[in-house]
Amino acid sequence: MQNRQAMRTRKWNQWRDRLFSLLGLSVTTLGVVVLLALLVDVFMDGFARLDFDFLTHFPSRRPERAGIYAAWVGTLWIAVLTAAMAFPIGVAAATYLEEYARKNWLTDLIEINIANLAGVPSIIYGLLGLGIFVRWMDLERSILAGGMTLALLVLPIVILSSRESLRTVPSSIREASYALGASKWQTIRNQVLPAAMPGILTGAILAISRALGETAPLITIGALTYVAFLPKNPIGSEFPFFNLDGLMDPFSVLPIQIFNWVSRPQKGFAINAAAAIIVLLFITFVMNGIAVYLRHRSQKKVRW
């Protein structure tokens, strides 16, 4: 009697297992299929349009002559600038919170705030950038203002992922360092940060690759949709071989260019948009690929 009951329960459990794995498979397939359909659609529309001219031409009224030169250069500028600001500030903040800050109500408050900030809609950061950088600091619609706005946007994410990574460094490593007479800073600088760095970089790269897809905050601060010039070249031929005048130039980025083209009625611009999407996707995939590689390498190299 009891035996039969057990058999029935086991059968039912097996069936339920199978049902769930089937459900999981179909849901996963659905997600992948939708993504694939999107990719295929974009590639069919835009791939033929991709050529050297497309990458080196400025936008134009005539779709067949228009290119994304200004847009991808702008995206590159913004990426470098965002990384240059968000990375050091984010890592420093995470290091402070994780290693130095005392646990009290103030750090709890900061922690909750950072977690909340990571979830604030990006357009709000655009408004903040408009208010502080564009108007109050009088930076106008410059690359600098755009980079600072996006740096603010990704800062909470960089801080959170850096803290996560710092937390995975085992305390035995810290103890080993302290026991040899290392100071706190020496321990952090020589042991904790290097051990956490692959994780920190992974988080930062993913955050920045997210920022590169952002349109709303940059439109809010007034990035241009039609740019027929490049920011001043940062690499010069005369001493000191670089200049940062380009920081104050107006700019556009790929998502804005795409947004602009998609909203036009002509078929040619829709094709251009598809081609620009491929370029943007390519940049994002490359960055995510680097992040995956770093994570993979660190997992292989270090085993505690």
């Binding site: 035995s172 080993a176 026991a179």
Partner: peptide, 25 residues
């Protein structure tokens, strides 16, 4: 000096592990 329960070498080379205490000086 101190040695711990679980061996805890730094994720560095053998040489750098031993040299660490001197380098920080």
């Amino acid at each position: 000096g101190m040695v711990f329960q679980k061996p805890n070498p730094f994720p560095k080379s053998i040489y750098e592990n031993v040299a660490y205490g001197l380098r920080i000086q």
